[in-house]
């Protein structure tokens, strides 16, 4: 493609994606609560943010649910992937197809179906909507992503590695933890990170399964959008945005350095 056209096209799409975010961040420094009139620069909303009980507790709830659900989903999903990997063809296909349901189903259906389940739990044995229902729901939509990111690593793993470990005197447990786990670790980590991200960002499933006692950040934001979003939320998003931007920049720098190192090593080998 012609160079200038490509550049213009990329810039237009990036502008489309970033204009709303730019607006959001700029208005987090606005003196008045208005979202369209600029009345002067202030850091007030950043200070008020940390004194806003509702936002801070929602943030804490989001973090609690995200950490519990992604850790548990990673454990459950990794064990499941190993078990499924060694299954026979037919049961494997059935389990994998069912695992695909939460990924492909519209989120609203996952949400309402779990809501019906928890309603029945609460009628039958006094189950309460809240942290527990949120964590159970988040594990449910997160486990498939863990399984789907661990499975390819298991397939890539040399099956003789485990046999070798057993021949050299490892028992089954040692062979698993000392040989298999390190081999599939990249898959486990990327599954965990995906689960964490989806959990932090989830609105739809949480909306149906949280009940009225516990609010996560997306639920608080949704409630605010019905009236007026307070600029403190803009301030919080600006902070999140800058932190993620920082992490990604550092990651890119490290990746770049590693790539250079690898290139050097390769050259050294070829000499």
């Amino acid at each position: 493609m012609k160079k200038p056209f490509s550049k213009i096209y990329i810039s237009l799409i990036l502008m489309f994606l970033y204009i709303p975010i730019f607006v959001l961040i700029v208005f987090s420094f606005n003196v008045s609560k208005s979202r369209a009139n600029w009345t002067g620069f202030t850091f007030d909303w950043y200070i008020k943010l940390f004194h806003n009980r509702q936002i801070m507790s929602a943030l804490l709830n989001t973090v609690i649910v995200a950490i519990f659900s992604s850790v548990l989903a990673t454990l459950l999903g990794t064990a499941a992937a190993v078990g499924i990997h060694f299954m026979k063809k037919a049961p494997k296909a059935i389990v994998m197809n069912i695992t695909y349901i939460p990924i492909i189903n519209p989120e609203i259906i996952t949400g309402v179906s779990l809501m019906l389940l928890f309603r029945i739990f609460s009628d039958a044995f006094g189950f309460k909507f809240g942290f527990l229902s949120l964590i159970l729901a988040h594990i449910t939509f997160n486990v498939p992503y863990v399984i789907y990111s661990v499975m390819p690593k298991l397939r890539q793993m040399n099956p003789y590695l485990l046999e070798a470990a057993r021949d050299l005197g490892c028992n089954e447990r040692q062979a698993f933890f000392k040989v298999a786990v390190p081999e599939i670790l990249p898959g486990i980590i990327s599954g965990f990170l995906m689960a964490l991200t989806f959990s932090i960002d989830d609105f739809v499933v949480s909306y149906f399964t949280s009940g009225t006692s516990v609010e996560t950040l997306p639920i608080t934001i949704a409630a605010m959008t019905r009236k007026k979003v307070s600029p403190e939320i803009n301030a919080l998003s600006a902070i999140i945005f800058i932190v993620v931007l920082g992490i990604l920049i550092i990651k890119n720098i490290i990746d770049g350095k590693n790539a250079k190192k690898e290139a050097k090593n390769n050259r050294a080998v070829s000499f």
């Binding site: 709303p20 975010i21 960002d201 934001i221 998003s237």
Partner: peptide, 16 residues
């Protein structure tokens, strides 16, 4: 990167 800002807020920004 934009996906790290909650989609409700980004949609709200479009309202603005």
């Amino acid at each position: 990167l934009p996906m790290w800002i909650n989609f409700l807020l980004r949609t709200y920004a479009w309202m603005t």
